[in-house]
Design a protein around this nucleic acid. Sequence first.
RNA 1: GGAGGGGUGCCAGAGUGGUUGAAUGGAGCGGUCUUGAAAACCGCCGUACUCGUAAGGGUACCGGGGGUUCGAAUCCCUCCCCCUCCGCCA
Length: 426
Amino acid sequence: MLQLKVIREEKKRILNGLRKRNWNAAQLKVIDQILKTDDQRKACQKELDDTLAESNRLSKEIGQLMAQGKKDQAEQQRAQVLAMKESIKTLEDRQRTLATELDNLLLSVPNCPHSSVPKGKTPDDNKVYKAWTKPFPELPEDALAHWDLAKKYNLFDLELGVKLTGAGFPVYRGQGARLQRALIQFFLDEAVKAGYEEIIPPHLVNEDSARGTGQLPDKEGQMYHCTVDNLYLIPTAEVPVTNIVRDDIIPEKNLPIKMTAYTPCFRREAGAWGAHVRGLNRVHQFDKVEIVHIEHPDRSYKAHQDMLRHVSRLMAKLELPYRILLLCGGDMGFASAKTFDFEVWSAAQKRWLEVSSVSNFETFQSNRLKSRFRDAEGKIQLTHTLNGSALALARIVAALLENNQTPEGIRIPKALWKYTGFKMIK
RNA sequence: GGAGGGGUGCCAGAGUGGUUGAAUGGAGCGGUCUUGAAAACCGCCGUACUCGUAAGGGUACCGGGGGUUCGAAUCCCUCCCCCUCCGCCA
């Protein structure tokens, strides 16, 4: 969530940013409401603190009076403090109500887009940041979509997944399973080479963690919830990995913290079914290697570019046609200040598929996480957090299978040979 | 799952109802001394909110929440976590 201090001091910038997210005048009123509520909260807090200070002072004196044997006076002050209790309780209740109200208001405001983020309402307004200029793979007329290729070569089985679990839980097998494992290994190795620390986090997180990265309270319905233990299946490794620095004050010299993790990702995605979500295009469980940065605010946009380069390199090594989009204000995620999407060309479906989203959240997440660092002057500041997929497997597999199909079988890009142990799927 | 013990500041570790935001030691930072270093000595060394131009002040926080009391790190309830023993088990 946005910092109150920033809303107060840079109100104009925030309002302009929210307009980029297509907020209308009525919606923008929330900002003034936040400031007003905060004023009320402060006034109430002050009154409470003053009352408590008085009550504390009197109570302390009672101890001294007792020690001096002045019993009557002690008794008199005791009555005095007792009388204050009711107003303290009233003030506390009011203070709590205002604080909750303020918190809810703050929670409803998305991150302020970076100045370089274009205006726009829908995905059509996203800017092509880096286009694919080379030719697309030429496929014969009878080229198969990946779900048909999967049947032909026995690579994964969605119907079997239905039997075991339900729709959207693919069962990978044979060379399909091996390819899956090869990609994970490849992505992790590349990330480690690029200086990321490898993490194997828990695949279930508690409420605090889900709140830390902003899945709660908003996107509750998108996560699988184990109610008996009140734990959530992670929708992305971002959740456990970013929460590693929750409530921490990091020495400046330890920044940046770069971490990578492979995890399965679980998404309920209720009600999002349609013709374009066949096969691996949208599933409830998929594998992903995530990269996460905890950065100094001065360097976060440079890091953002570094992440872009890292993902580009992966795409190039996999020999996949891709493009990079700079998301417009209307299409950006709630918590993000700036997001680039990577899309891979799926030659048989003749569609772009989103395979990575690389975002800078600035202090939006750290504010909630309380992820801070101590700067050179010893002052405590919020860190910037960033993350990106590097990469999401299911759709990469879809594109890989479709683009590389030949009459002899499916060609495996050279970079994967040492991981798959085979050069062709037959 | 059963029985017992415990959760205090960066770490170790006192504190069991009053002037304790918290003894003491260590680490860290600054200084004196020294050719330099070490040792010794002196000082500083929590977070959040808030009032104030500042100096400085106020409030909250000793695992989380609630309660008793004029007053709680200290007493009570409850939840969480850790350790030891037993049971079960990949």
